[in-house]
Amino acid sequence: MSDVVTVNHAPTAKQSGQVVKALEASANRVDWANHLFKYLFMLSAFIGVFSVGLIGYFLIKEGMPALSYAGVTNFVFGMEWVPPVLFGIAPMIVASLISALGAVVIGVPVALLTAIFLAEVAPKRVADVVRPAVELLAGIPSVVYGFFGLVIIVPMVEKVFNIPAGNTLMAAIIVLAVMILPTVIAISETALRAVPRSYKEGSLALGASPMFTIFKVLLPAARSGILAGVVLGIARAIGETMAIIMVMGNSPAMPRHLLDSARSLTANIAMEMAYATGLHSSALYTTGIVLLVFVMVLNATLLYLNREKAR
């Protein structure tokens, strides 16, 4: 080291009698608190797993009657939803997928550029204002998004496309695109910041411009993290209910284009659960099963991406 250290007293390895006694007592004691906490942690973890299991069980148990009445094919590919006779949810599957994908198409580029701005371009002071603002977006209740969509987006869609009713897939896509921003931005920014500093330095030291560095080194290196953010964004969009009900029109017919009214899987459950009975009620649980399958596929994708990152 650079400074010369002067030693004032001889160092000693011997502890005083009191300290020795306390250490010995501690060594012989059974540490109950340690055991207690171990089981407390385990119990807490178990509660989460148990809940997932229970929800899955009830969905399947309640959804089975409608599924066996209609058959998987008729249920998933059926075009008509006329409870309690016809239980085809293909239009809703399409509506859920299209609205989520549309939200990704519009939202992800914006989110990605924002994440790059926050991680690489913005001066610290600007980033410190933009980042909390984006995080606030995540905290806004979805009913407020729905309200915003109803008052601003729906009339806007009516005007721009010159249609009588703006409650459409298009309106839902725009609202969802805004809703997934905070998720995708936060995760992408984290992924970009996790790229080793040495990559960036190596690139700049070769005379590459900051933009070349971002697009050729940082983004590819952060790819799997960014994709994980996108997947979580899709999951958020597929699961969204309230805002969608308020802006998408909720017609159970197959939407023919983006300016059609449509009903998502989530909206189907939320809107009819209050009065449905018998097979009709069961069919709503089955809709829940389909939704769960989608989410499981997305989570599996996420697991796969994370494994790739760890490699």
């Binding site: 080793p196 990559y199 330095e201 190596g202 030291a205 005379g207 590459a208 080194v217 290196a221």
Partner: peptide
């Protein structure tokens, strides 16, 4: 960037790009 093209640098820890 032009300056850094003339003045190359090699770092303490080898830092090849992931490619």
């Amino acid at each position: 960037g032009g300056l850094r093209m003339k003045v190359g640098m090699v770092f303490q820890k080898p830092n090849p790009f992931p490619m």
